[in-house]
């Protein structure tokens, strides 16, 4: 059978499934809550975005400089420690981090942001280090040889050439962050998770979908936006072949 046809049919089936889900859930009035309680919805949405934006921002401004620092020759030894801690940290489930933050800092917005921040640090740090380390040593030698200062090598060679993996790390972090923020309800951090957990407890489809679908769309939207930003930031001379897994 024609391979293109198989592919097309499968795409069509998936598309139909998604569409019929939306048709069914709309027809059942499961999103009415968003309109009826628009104020509450907007409040939770903003809270959600606030949590994610704040924690991601803090993670980016800390993890990238940290990654730069541990890739300097002086800190070679620290690099091993940082990378292993980052790898180990990423093995720990997000719910556990959130729970640990809560037992330490109590409940509320702060422990939620702190947990999200901690959890986003790791992929960004890991990708920054991996990205800078994967740069061809010949490039650095050439840059040094024609008279770039160490700062110029960092800004004009290392960071631009590691931009793709760094951006991929940020994307991974933000997407995970949006999902983990949906658990923040558990530690009293608010966000759209409020409605999802209410829905679970009350077995109420309206709450479930009015919470879950916006969170999903938010994650997909963030993913797409950051991919678009990647295209703008990463030089056209670099094809995204960097195989840092996300």
């Amino acid at each position: 059978m024609n391979k293109r046809l198989v592919s097309f049919v499968i795409k069509l089936i998936l598309f139909t499934l998604v569409m019929s889900f939306f048709a069914w859930s709309f027809k059942s009035g499961y999103y009415q809550l968003i309109i009826d309680d628009a104020e509450g919805f907007i409040f939770l949405l903003i809270q959600h975005i606030h949590m994610v934006a704040l924690s991601s921002f803090l993670a980016i401004v800390l993890a990238i400089p940290m990654g730069i620092l541990v890739t300097r020759p002086k800190f070679q030894k620290l690099q091993w420690l940082f990378m292993n801690t980052a790898n180990l940290g990423q093995t720990i489930p997000s719910l556990a981090i959130l729970a640990l933050a809560m037992t330490w800092m109590g409940i509320g917005f702060k422990p939620a942001v702190f947990a999200l921040f901690l959890y986003s640090l790791l992929p960004i740090l890991r990708n920054t280090v991996a990205g800078i380390k994967s740069i061809d040593p010949d490039l650095l030698d050439a840059a040094k040889g024609i008279g770039y200062t160490p700062a110029q090598i960092l800004l004009k060679i290392e960071l631009p050439n590691a931009a793709y993996p760094i951006m991929a790390g940020i994307r991974t972090a933000v997407v995970i962050n949006i999902g983990t923020a949906a658990l923040a309800y558990l530690v009293g951090g608010g966000g759209l998770g409020d409605w999802i957990f209410t829905g679970i407890m009350m077995r109420d489809n309206s709450y479930l979908l009015s919470g879950a679908i916006p969170v999903t769309l938010l994650a997909l939207l963030a993913d797409q936006l950051i991919r678009a930003a990647e295209k703008l930031i990463v030089s056209k001379g670099l094809r995204p072949s960097a195989a840092v897994s996300d």
Binding site: F21, I213, L220
Partner: peptide, 17 residues
């Protein structure tokens, strides 16, 4: 993979119900 896990549960509950 991009769909948050708690949201996926939230979406599946009405369907699997």
């Amino acid at each position: 993979m991009t769909v948050p896990s708690i949201a996926l549960f939230g979406i599946m509950i009405p369907i699997l119900s």
